[in-house]
Design a protein around this nucleic acid. Sequence first.
RNA 1: GGGGCGUUAACUCAGCGGGAGAGUGCUACCUUCACACGGUAGAAGUCGUAGGUUCAAAUCCUACACGCCCCACCA
Length: 890
Amino acid sequence: MKPPSTASAASMDKSFDPKTVEPRWRSHWEKHDIFRAEPGSSRPPFCMVIPPPNITGRLHVGHGLNNALQDVLARWRRMSGDDVLWVPGSDHASIATHVMIERQLEKEGITRQQLGREKFLERAWAWKQKYGGEIADQLRQLGASCDWSRERFTMDPGLSRAVREVFVRLYEKGLIYRDRYLINWCPRCGTAVSDLEVVHKEMLGKIWTVRYQLEGGGEIRVATTRPETILGDAAVAVHPDDARYRDLVGRRAILPVLGRMIPVVADSFVDPAFGTGAVKVTPAHDPNDFLAGRRLGLEPIVVMDETGRMNAAAGPFAGLDRFECRTRLLEQLRNDGALIEEKDHMLSVGRCQRCDTIVEPMISLQWFVRMEPLAAPALEAVESGRIAVVPDQWKKTYYEWMRNIRDWCISRQLWWGHRIPAWYCAQCGAMIVSREDPVSCACGGRRLEQDPDVLDTWFSSGLWAFSTLGWPESTPELRRYYPTTVLVTGYDIIFFWVARMVMMGLEFMEDVPFHTVFFNGMVRDAKGEKMSKMKGNTVDLFDLLDTYGTDAVRFTCAALTSPGSDVAMSPGRLEGSRAFANKIWNAVRFARPHLDAAPAAPPAVEDGLGPADRWILSRCSRVAGEVNEALEAFRFDEASAKIYQFAWHELCDWYLELSKQPLSSANAQEADASRAVLRHVMERVIRMLHPFMPFITEELWQALPRVAGDPVSIALCAYPLSEPAFEDPEAESALATLIDAVTMCRNLRAEKKVAIKEPVRTWIQPANEAVARSLAGLEVQFKRLTRTSELQIGVIPAEVASVSGVSASAALQMAIQHEGRTTDVGAERARLQKEIEAASKELSVHEVKLGNEAFVSRARPEAVEKVRSAHGELSERIKLLKSALSRLGA
RNA sequence: GGGGCGUUAACUCAGCGGGAGAGUGCUACCUUCACACGGUAGAAGUCGUAGGUUCAAAUCCUACACGCCCCACCA
């Protein structure tokens, strides 16, 4: 099959236009199915599972970053010969989707309850149909090289089966249980949420001191920030050792307003120093009090319903909203003279992560996962290094959470999600937990009702690493790709997802879900502030792609990803990347006619290549090595910077200019040699860049001369490695010399404002015979570089040149600059560097000795002095060397 | 209350024991036959503050200041 037509050499636009190029290759990749993994392949497997985006909306810049990085790895490994499986998919996002759909319903003026479960689920599936597909399209737009044939959704039949299997196994093992417990309740969503889904925010509130009369006279004062919970008080507690209250323990207090009698009890959880030292105990509406209530045998009194309204137990306040109740209750307390003090107080208020409603601690019957037994192996897996964490600062966060783990409330009073596989018999009340829907109870009863609740959305995503590969079936994919190689994700979901995936993987696959987890940073705006809709500083990913082009955005993501730091999407960086894409485009535009004429065979060292050719081949080899090294270490910033620097400032700024002359040489052999080198280097750079900028590189690669047997896409070409045969220190040294000479001419011209009209000749004293040979007879046009017609380099000992066509003072200046030093800066620099290294080594030896001598020194101080003076001398020498180096380096 | 991260040029960020760097912006000059999304030259930084270790500190240690983030049941 023929590739789509690329712009011909003649018609290549002056600037790169992403909009025409990107769609072409997107469909080309799809058509040729080049991202499909091959479980039967003999190549080493490399697998990643995508952090499944929620189906709640379009991708944001954070997704852009995360997927750009994954794609860099996927394409790099694929080109490096691995059998890459990158599993795409999306998450049903139970509660988040609920919030979105309920917002729709609100506009229509109905509640989800009015709509009913069946109709609501129809809506949810329709939503999924629409947005699930959009997300896949958006990932494609980014160029994500996922295996689309293996796309998954957390509510697919297979994955749902995995969820049931896990639930039942955990239940049978006693790790899932059902209990009445104090949980976080979101009154708006009408569901329990886990501790992680509660976001605590500091805000200025008030603290009130309230007087409770004691039965038979006297009073006790308590402080509270939530006076409405007074209605549910079961006791007043004081510290057992608190002398002020010791005598009151065992007496009864009269609850204000309601007049109910509650005991005064002693418990050490009370801090005598806080507030009045006496605390109201509301077991049904406060986590601390709940535990205290259990210890003290107090009966919880529930005063609110699941919508946040006061219930019958609230007496005269029944039916009021909780905050309205607070206001009214305070009024009454004030009227009754029971309100003693009101003052400002900073408090931390828990809000629903999804809808920002203030959550209410409530007692309720829920399902939980017992976490300690699962956490222990998960902790060990990271401690032992079986899972590598990059950057490793996140280990500490992970350990901290694992070591203080608490049971996980997994049931949600929602409809969209995996329904809990538990049934209750209407006849005998028995509970059946089962993989298959049961038809009858052991008692013979046939009226079975399934638990109405669904599971926390993170329950199914916790299985993602193996459920997407076919578990519980033993599929070829599961056997080959589990454990996956790398997980790339944001650190914001380290507990929600990463930690739980480790636990689930170890429990059900008896192995880690991934060998390495790489945490990318969070995307900030250009000022480094967190993006939020409230602040209005959000940047739309697709606006960015539209403005700068997908390649430029992806390149910027990589360039800004250094381990452990967040990413600020700065316009400057984006512009730089866009300019870079254009630069590469034009480099190929220049090179193409020469490449078409180039010999098919790659260059060879025996071809008698010139110094510039040998130099660029050598540099290209080194850069390839460095880029691979950087990628191995997840240094996306270093890898992209190396390519950028090399491509722009070595290849374009110098090599392309230097090659213009030989490329158009009448000497066919010389021209061919240069063409072969240009072709080789150009293609290698484009390949190196491909994982970062897939679209432009595909376009350019397709435009290069093709040979039989080439793959259909650059994505299937080999990723460049270093080529030791081309590494050539002498050529590098020679070119450093040349570059120095040219730069010097330019400096002179700029500083002295001289117009150099005729050829300038400069003489260089080479460092050694080899460099001399490299440079001998090198005559290059530097029209572009010096604004002179040409610069001749002659190999002549240190005598001063006569310079024609420049002013006398400029000539003199030039002569001075040449005199008295070797202009082979490269060699000189290397020599000095070596001396410094040697001196430093010597120093470190002395340091060791100094340690020993210091011990002896108590008896012989002069020995220490000797060492110290040696240090001083060496330090001086290093300073001298460094200053010499800086003079040369500049 | 505990923990983490950051503070380097005007902006966004690398560097983490021996020459203070990149991209963008800025200044001057230049439409030269790949590219003005370009070329050349250049200005620009007490590397948060104060101590300490070292022959040598932006880089290691200790405090402090400011900023950001996470975790935590203090009424």
